[in-house]
Simulated assay, not measured.
Amino acid sequence: MILAKKVRLYPTKEQEQKLWQSVGTARFIYNYTLAKQEENYKNGGKFISDGIIRKELTQLKKSELLWLNEVSNNVTKQAVKDACNAYKRFFKSLANRPKFKSKKKSNHSFYNDSIKLKVKEKKVLIEKVGWIKTNEQIPICKYNNPRITHDNKYWYISVGIEVNKKQEKLTDISLGIDLGLKDLAICSDGKVFKNINKTKKVKNLEKKLRQKQRQISRKYEMNKTKKEGGRRCQFIKTKNIEKLEETTRLIHRKLSNIRNNYLHQITTSIVKTKPYRIVIEDLNVIGMMKNKHLSNSVRKQCFHKFRQYITYKSELNGIELIVANRFYPSSKTCSQCGSIKKNLKLKDRIYRCPHCGAIIDRDLNAAINLSMYKLA
């Protein structure tokens, strides 16, 4: 099993400049490849293989794109491969249509060749950048897919490392987990993991973020000027606006880290109970996001990440993970008599069974039903 190891980098100013250059190159080549594929498809041509595009770029390096020689050749190679794979996945209906990467919104990352990646005591060698200090020692072994990323504050290197699965004694408990908005996760054993977005710390950060965004909006309005002979306005970006935008990026980063850390804590504590199987529901998150009243709350809960973390942690610990059918009526079924209450509404937080008279919390009832999913 391959697990990711993420280590922080401490580059010098010169090295940081080279890292940003590699990030910009990866984005440019990705967009160039995507534009080639789009144009070719509109003209009725077949899919262009990554080898043909790489040959074109090799010729362009000698004439028009001389600056590509300042960056590692593996950055351009992998960017072409990533764009071609994204385009293939779209036509196989495995992913959405690939979009062009924006300088502001896209993730800042690039690929480093695993063969040319060298490691010694708290240092790592990145091609055409040099030896960079790290906060901890990276284990010396065979690496998979090394990526250098920037999270709006620090630089990191992520590598995939082969890890052996744990062989632990599991209990005879089948654990059902119901995900929701009131509480993040409700387990069939009675454990409730609260919604971290309702805590004071997160609410204060979100309030601060809204204030900073309003300040940016007001400053843009103050600095806008009309173009000569036209109705369109031109917005002038000042140093104060740049500082405020940097502050908002750091708040976004902090909120993301808080939610991510909470998900790791929850999934680890669930796996530590050592059930022989875990049952979760297959949520239609895209459909839930269409509800304008709930879309923001659904986005903040990060249901996809929860499923991602519980999946790999279950596999690592030898626990069977079962994803219940999307149309399985876990909330409408009575966990005591098995009858289905068809007229159950979203606002009904207490489940009252009309047949056996059972009264139970709606989410706990769903979690118990999931724990019994496909059991004889």
Rank of each mutant, 00 (worst) to 15 (best):
E136G: 05
A79M: 04
C84F: 03
Y143L: 03
R97A: 05
I48Y: 06
K77T: 06
A86K: 02
L66K: 15
D50M: 12
I161C: 10
W155Y: 15
N69E: 14
S93L: 05
I126H: 12
A79N: 01
Y87W: 12
S93E: 09
L125T: 01
K81D: 06
P98T: 00
A95Q: 07
S106I: 00
G51T: 10
W155L: 12
K120G: 00
H150F: 15
K122G: 03
E121F: 08
I138M: 06
N112V: 09
W67F: 11
K122M: 04
H150A: 01
Y41R: 10
R97V: 10
G160I: 00
S93I: 00
V119A: 07
K55D: 13
W155Q: 04
Q78L: 03
V75N: 02
L68H: 05
I157H: 09
E38G: 02
I148F: 14
E64V: 13
K36N: 09
C141F: 11
W155F: 15
S72L: 06
F90W: 13
K77R: 14
Y87A: 02
N69G: 13
F110M: 01
A83L: 00
T58N: 15
C141P: 07
L60T: 06
N135V: 02
I115A: 08
L68V: 03
E64N: 14
I115Y: 13
I161N: 06
K104I: 05
A86Q: 02
S158G: 08
R89P: 11
K153T: 07
